[in-house]
Amino acid sequence: MSLIKSSLARKYVMALSGLFLVIFLILHVTINLASVFSPEFFNEASHFMGYNPLVQFLMQPILIAGVIVHFVMGFVLEIQNRKARDVGYVKYNGAANAPWASRNMIYSGLVVLAFLALHFYDFWVHEMTYKYIEANPQDPTRYYAETVEKFAPVWRTVLYAVSFVLLGLHLWHGFASSFQSMGVNNKYTAGFKKFAKIFAVVVPLAFAFIAVYHHLNPITH
């Protein structure tokens, strides 16, 4: 019981749900990259993810729960943290002792959350409608064309790219910070943290590249 109430437990929840979402990002970016290099593999992988019952009815709800736990706990912590300083400073030089990304996780997180709403509307709602409301037959070849078409408008490509920059900033602090929250401190910690920083740059860049690539390379019939 003491674990549920404690400030440290809330940090463990943030760290573990964040690490879980990082693992999901690896899977997501790998499949998305296939849309650039092998549309056939992209179609196959997307079809598998869209129709495999284990993915649809077990992994997908766990993923959604992971996202909800992460942002709800983020808001809870933010509210508590604001309460902990009831009278603010007239002059507070936060930039002198901590990087921007670490001080603004709530804002980078809010942008990512707003992006997720758009992203869910673009792809998830579309999938649910296609499969369960319109009850269309399975078509394992549709995914590549649908994805490329999504990035035809400039506004969506720009919104996605900007959101990925904020995702990068969120990961820049969050991924490395999760090791600290879980109390990891051994001879591998420096290596973990370096890997986390590289991840925070490479993965969002890859996502942004995919969006821009499809915008610049529309399907011509």
Partner: peptide
């Protein structure tokens, strides 16, 4: 520490 009303650590390092 929690009872005293301090905030949570977000590992900023400040």
């Amino acid at each position: 520490m929690d009872l005293e009303g301090f905030g949570n650590c977000t590992n900023t390092g400040a």
